[in-house]
Amino acid sequence: MALPIHAAPWLARVGVFDLETTGLDVTDDRIVTAHVGVLDRHGRELAARDWLADPSIPIPDGATAVHGISTDHAREHGRPAQEVVAQVIHALRVLFAQGLPIVVYNASYDFSLLAHEARRHGIDELTMPSPVIDPLVIDKAYDRYRPGKRTLSVVADHYSVPLQGAHEASADAVAAGRVALALAKEFPLPHSATELHSRQIGWAREQAAGLTEYFIRTGRLEPEQTVDGTWPVRA
């Protein structure tokens, strides 16, 4: 899936990052598995590292059903959570220091949970990670009215990106990176990763406002409640 020469040359190499966790609460839930890697412009993975953590709390059955990791397995085979969090943050810092944009699907979830894990374990968190590429935000911005869900598996299928082993951190991270490359072929993305990062901040805010309006209209939120649209780390 080589990109046209004129399409986003800054996507020649991208980092990819994904977490699988104990749940959906970025404040209280914990990392179970993590993946950080690098893709070339063809979507081939040049480097990769995976982690399995012992989150030090029970993994709910619902989470195990999603990613396949049980509490007993994590306790027996996982590394201490503090060690995993520190190593994941270091790996991301190295990629950012190299000037690579990092692709994360629904980035505000992964980066926010990682930030809370860092605080929990007394580790220096990533401060304003940038540049980040979030295919979820970009896809919604460029193809706003397309019907259907926007889960990674659905969006990957829409852009003809294979996704085998969904909800495995490595599979999801690589698929998200390949979706980002497909988006660069499909739409006129900005001319730099920095500019795209800045635009995503506004797009995420607008998308959250629209979701807030919808949730209030359908009774899922009270009129005084809002969906947090700060990106790539929630307020």
Rank of each mutant, 00 (worst) to 15 (best):
A169N: 12
R144G: 01
L52K: 06
L95C: 11
A184P: 04
I57L: 02
L221N: 13
P9C: 10
D110Y: 04
H73D: 11
G43M: 02
V154Y: 05
V16E: 13
F111D: 06
D40P: 08
A2I: 05
K149Q: 08
A2W: 07
I69S: 07
V103P: 10
D157R: 15
G78V: 04
G202L: 03
V36R: 05
A182D: 03
K185W: 03
T21P: 06
Q82K: 15
D50G: 07
H197R: 10
H35R: 09
D18G: 10
R44S: 06
A169W: 11
P55R: 06
T22D: 04
S70R: 07
I59H: 05
P147L: 04
A180L: 00
G202A: 01
D124Y: 06
G62I: 10
V94Y: 04
V174A: 08
E45G: 01
E213Q: 11
R146K: 09
V104N: 07
I102W: 04
R205D: 10
A81I: 01
V66Q: 12
M1I: 00
A176L: 06
K149N: 08
P190I: 01
L52Q: 09
W51Q: 05
Q225P: 12
E20G: 07
P190V: 03
G15P: 06
I201A: 09
S153I: 02
V14H: 01
H6L: 08
V155K: 09
H77C: 00
I123S: 14
H77S: 00
D72T: 05
H35G: 10
A12M: 02
H191T: 07
D54Q: 03
N106M: 00
R150G: 09
R13Q: 15
D25P: 07
Y159C: 01
A86Q: 13
A208G: 12
R178Y: 02
L189C: 03
T127I: 08
H6P: 03
R93H: 14
P232A: 05
L181R: 11
R41C: 04
E168C: 02
M1W: 05
R205A: 14
K185P: 01
R144H: 10
L113H: 13
Y109H: 10
A141Q: 12
A182L: 00
S108P: 08
W231M: 09
V161H: 12
V161I: 14
A193N: 09
D25V: 01
L19K: 14
L100H: 14
Y142L: 06
A169K: 11
V154E: 13
D110C: 02
